Simulated assay, not measured.
Amino acid sequence: MPLRFAPLCLLGLAVAADAHDFWLQAARWQAAPGEPIRMTLQVGHGPYRQRSPIPARRIVRFAAIAPNGRQIDLRRGMHIGGADDATAAFGAPGTYVVVLETDNRAESHLPAIRFNDYLKVEGLTPAIALRTSAGRMDADGAENYSRHAKAIVRVGPVGAKPASRVTKPAGLALEIVPEADPLTIGRGGALPVRIYYRGTPLAGALVKLNDLDHDAEPVAMRRSDAQGRAVFRLPGKGNWQLNVIWTRPQPKTSLTDFDTSFSSLSFGAIE
């Protein structure tokens, strides 16, 4: 069947799975007040990593949540496909959460064996159970998908006091919410996170921690517990990303089988 979500998927299953990973990459995670922070949209891992080809028309939300909770619209700083995809500058010191969401109009169509393997690799056990019970494990798979990304950036020096805004949900459809400020966690410290899906804690999701400087394979993987929580040990300084995927069945009238959300949280451990 035709594949309409990324040319990389034609290269094989591993590429198809990796090409779903999507995140906001800041050129630097810490800046002085008023200093521009350049950002790109990244997709894939290892040798298949690239700038995302997503068109600007699919982005439905691009904003920053300030330390005081005020939402700042960043759309005016978008220049998708330019030298960078966006630039933002913040005057007040503190920790900001940059959020980006797309619509779900993109589609992925895969042969049965690749679709089943993709579901297994990403830990989407409810979708596997549904295909099994419906006798569709030999059927090609199709999904609509959306992307939901957050990045944590710091303006001014990192203080000893954790940034409370970082540990609050930002209202994404699928979201990774750290329960401790990643910027203040030292080497080997615990980083607890909680996964929310449509506002409710999500159990059984496979959460992956990636070192963005050496990202061919995840550093660690955890399943969220009954309260949607997972705990990682942060190896130390560097550029880090957490990602998670979840899906739900489409109505029978839909042309695709599932509605899938891909979510990420990226940050730099600078302490």
Results as ranks from 00 to 15, higher is better:
P2R: 14
P2Q: 11
P2N: 08
P2Y: 15
L3P: 08
R4Y: 13
R4M: 11
R4P: 10
R4N: 14
F5Q: 10
F5V: 03
F5C: 07
P7N: 12
P7S: 13
P7R: 15
P7C: 14
P7K: 14
L8D: 09
L8Q: 10
L8W: 13
L8I: 11
C9P: 01
C9D: 00
L10V: 07
L10E: 14
L10C: 15
L10F: 13
L11Q: 12
L11H: 08
L11A: 13
L11V: 08
G12S: 13
G12Q: 11
G12P: 08
L13I: 05
L13P: 02
L13G: 03
L13N: 01
A14P: 06
A14H: 10
A14C: 15
V15A: 06
V15N: 02
V15F: 02
A16C: 10
A16S: 13
A17G: 01
A17R: 00
D18F: 03
A19D: 03
A19L: 00
H20W: 05
H20I: 01
D21P: 02
D21F: 10
D21N: 12
F22A: 11
F22S: 06
W23V: 03
W23Q: 01
L24W: 05
L24A: 10
L24K: 09
Q25Y: 05
Q25E: 14
Q25C: 05
A26V: 09
A27T: 09
A27L: 10
R28D: 06
R28K: 12
R28C: 04
R28A: 10
R28H: 12
R28Q: 08
R28Y: 08
R28S: 09
W29G: 04
W29S: 07
Q30W: 06
Q30D: 01
Q30R: 15
A31M: 06
A31R: 02
A31P: 00
A31T: 08
A31V: 14
A32C: 09
A32S: 13
P33F: 05
P33G: 05
P33M: 02
P33S: 05
G34I: 04
G34T: 00
E35I: 07
P36L: 11
P36I: 04
P36D: 05
I37M: 11
I37E: 01
I37T: 05
R38A: 09
R38T: 03
M39K: 07
M39E: 08
M39H: 07
M39T: 09
M39S: 11
M39G: 06
M39Y: 07
T40K: 14
T40E: 12
T40D: 12
T40L: 11
T40I: 14
L41S: 02
L41P: 00
L41I: 06
Q42H: 04
Q42T: 14
V43R: 01
V43S: 02
V43P: 00
V43D: 01
G44N: 04
H45N: 14
H45W: 09
G46W: 03
G46C: 07
P47K: 02
P47A: 10
Y48A: 11
Y48C: 05
R49H: 04
R49S: 01
R49E: 01
R49Y: 02
Q50H: 13
R51I: 05
R51N: 10
S52I: 00
S52W: 00
S52L: 00
S52H: 02
S52Y: 00
P53Q: 08
P53D: 07
P53T: 02
P53L: 11
I54G: 05
P55C: 07
A56H: 07
A56W: 06
A56I: 15
